[in-house]
Design a protein around this nucleic acid. Structure first.
Length: 610
DNA sequence: GAACTCGCCGTCTCAGTGAC
DNA sequence: GTCACTGAGACGGCGAGTTC
């Protein structure tokens, strides 16, 4: 600790000691090439003194010459320090041999390596006590501090009591894993800047940062910790902050979907509070300002400012919510019973009307799966001949086909038909191909091998499901030259556990759909859905990834497509013969996903492209 | 006396600033 | 442009003060 001094340097009484060579003098570090720029020297740990400039130094500039001096073999004594307490006599040298040469800057040097370097330097130099804690010069920047006060201050700061308190606060501070990036202005100081950025984004049509968070303080909190990329997108350098943001997105969606008519009056129900997981600090409002009390920072909960005043209102609200939940449970139970009864009745009628055909549909989880595990719904071509305006994929299938049904599990105990069609490579076993439309408990018999991500909405869920299926049917009936790959046969799981069959399936599907303008694959990896669009005649594969954050790689599916492509071309499949191989376009430039809506974006892209 | 608010403490981080 | 320094706010826990 060295207070400022107006003098440029201070003379230290020499305390000469005989040189005492140490084992470190024969340092194991290799000599550094003279042409390399040394790492930035920003502290005493890199700068030290030597008795005199080397007479053989090639540099007329003493500072530059210093950079080429080696760590002294004998112990030296500091006699003069500058106003910052750094030694100036003997002249400084750079002990680069203490730090590895591979670091681009001193900031990158690990603390352990710095500590080792400092220990080595301390063995080589003597620092008189006054150089470490020099006396205060009163005529400097802080004339109001007397020497006596300064000495007492140092004593206080070095006391065991203060050190204990300091360590305790360090421990507390370590619990804060969400450091902000606000600077000296805080949230209040950033308000105008963020408002201007929002306005500029709206004018330019660019996505407004964190527009999916309507709550001001939740949005501010996220914004204070995000970093803007050169392309205008935002990212969280701290993964813990990203987790909180995702949690808030989830709360926004779940709160909306709960369709609660009674808005909570509990301050603890705020999405930022819930996402952070720790209680609010009295007298301040996170995301608004550390000096802004709750009654101002959270006006939504103003009625709870003096909590005892609304205790009755809160009790009533809680009671209403409880009654509403119980009523909802009873209605749901009654509705499910009636629905099951009606569905069973309809299916029995359907079953009797289809008696004698080759297809038998089972209600409930009892579902047959294609025994080959190979092509399914993508190869199904059930449209009527008069509807066909372009050649169909089935034209490329020279083998026998058989009817099949694409079945979708709607709830845990109820499956429904999504579509009917034909499948090639028939067997005597009845084929029913299936998709899940919602998260499936792990103990249910699987319709197919696909496992939906728990944090990601299913690709074909409710309205999205309708859209996706309409897209599929429409493209087939109108001949929009779009083919599909079955996501239940190509996914993260099959690429790991059944790679050869998956590649074989891709190859067969490429062949079957080679006349198409595009072949769609809704692909799931790392709990995230993207649309992969294969254009055989252009040798191109486009990856429509809606995620704003670039945290995904698509190596497994990319490699599988590569392996399937070569035999497809060898076999004579349609492609651009002028180009070798095919290209993966991974840099989808219009990533606009907010929340957990990747499934929606996949369907949206399908709809637009088809 | 219980429930709650507010201010203090020290640490941490980083935007802003000025020197080079 | 880089670097070091400065200063301000955010933050967690605690305890004094306030309100009911």
């Amino acid at each position: 600790m060295s207070p400022p001094s107006p003098s440029s340097e201070r003379q230290i009484q020499p305390t000469a000691k005989p040189a005492s060579p140490t084992p470190e003098s024969a340092a194991p570090f290799p000599p550094e090439p003279a042409s390399l720029t040394p790492p930035a020297a920003s502290s005493l740990s890199l700068l030290a003194s030597s008795p005199s400039p080397s007479p053989t130094s090639p540099h007329p500039d003493p500072d530059r010459a210093a950079l080429h001096r080696r760590l002294p073999e004998s112990k030296l004594t500091i006699t003069v320090v500058d106003l910052n307490g750094n030694p100036t006599q003997p002249p400084k040298i750079a002990t680069r041999e203490c730090i590895g040469i591979l670091h681009k800057s001193f900031k990158e040097v690990p603390d352990e390596e710095k500590e080792l370097a400092w220990e080595r330097l301390k063995d080589k130099f003597d620092y008189p006590p006054e150089a470490v804690d020099p006396p205060l010069d009163l005529t400097g920047k802080y004339p109001q501090i007397t020497a006596e006060v300064w000495t007492e201050f140092l004593t206080l700061k070095k006391s065991s009591e203060f050190i204990n308190i300091s360590n305790e606060h360090k421990r507390l501070q370590a619990r804060n894993v969400h450091p902000h990036r606000l600077g000296t202005g805080g949230y209040i100081g950033k308000a105008d800047t963020w408002a201007e950025e929002d306005e500029a984004a709206r004018r330019s049509g660019a996505p407004v940062p964190f527009a999916d968070l309507e709550e001001e303080r939740a949005r501010n909190w996220a914004r204070a910790r995000a970093k803007q990329n050169p392309d205008g997108t935002v990212m969280f350098p701290n993964e813990a902050d990203a987790d909180v943001y995702r949690q808030m997105q989830y709360f926004v969606v779940s709160d909306q979907s709960s369709q609660s008519e009674i808005e909570s009056v509990k301050r603890e129900d705020d999405i930022l509070t819930r996402a952070l997981g720790n209680p609010e600090h009295g007298g301040r409002t996170r995301g608004i300002g550390s000096t802004v009390p709750w009654n101002i920072g959270m006006p939504k909960y103003l009625a709870q400012y003096k909590k005892w005043k609304i205790s009755r209102a809160e009790k009533e609200a809680r009671l209403k919510e409880e009654l509403r939940f119980q009523l909802s449970q009873e209605l749901t139970k009654e509705f499910n019973a009636r629905l099951t009864h009606e569905v069973t009745k309809i299916r029995q009628e359907l079953h009797s009307s289809q008696a004698g055909t080759t297809v038998v549909i089972h209600a409930g989880p009892q579902v047959y799966v294609s025994p080959t595990g190979l092509p399914s719904s993508c190869a199904s071509t059930g449209m009527d001949a008069q509807d066909r305006v372009v050649p169909s994929a089935v034209d490329h299938i020279n083998e026998d086909t058989a009817p099949c049904v694409l079945q979708v599990r709607v709830t845990a105990k109820f499956s429904s038909d999504a579509d009917e069609g034909l499948v090639f490579k028939p067997s005597k076993t009845i084929r029913v191909h299936a998709l899940e439309v919602e998260d499936v408990p792990p103990n249910l018999p699987p319709i197919k091998t696909i496992i939906w991500a728990s944090s990601s909405p299913s690709m074909m869920y409710q309205k999205k499901d309708t859209k996706g299926r309409m897209c599929w049917r429409e493209s087939r009936k109108k001949g929009l030259r779009v083919g599909f790959l079955d996501p239940s046969l190509i996914n993260e799981t099959t690429l790991k556990s059944n790679l050869d069959s998956t590649i074989e399936y891709i190859g067969m599907s490429l062949w079957a759909h080679q006349d198409k303008e595009a072949i769609f694959l809704a692909h799931n990896q790392q709990r995230h859905w993207i649309l992969i669009c294969i254009c055989p005649k252009w040798n191109m594969v486009y990856y429509f990834n809606s995620a704003i954050l670039s945290i995904y790689t698509w190596v497994p599916i990319t490699e599988a497509l590569d392996r399937a492509w070569e035999p497809y071309v060898t076999k004579g499949g349609k492609h651009d013969a002028k180009r070798t191989g095919h290209t993966h376009k991974l840099d989808f430039p219009i990533a606009q996903q907010t929340g957990l809506m990747c499934g929606f974006h996949v369907c949206h892209h399908m709809s637009n492209l088809s």
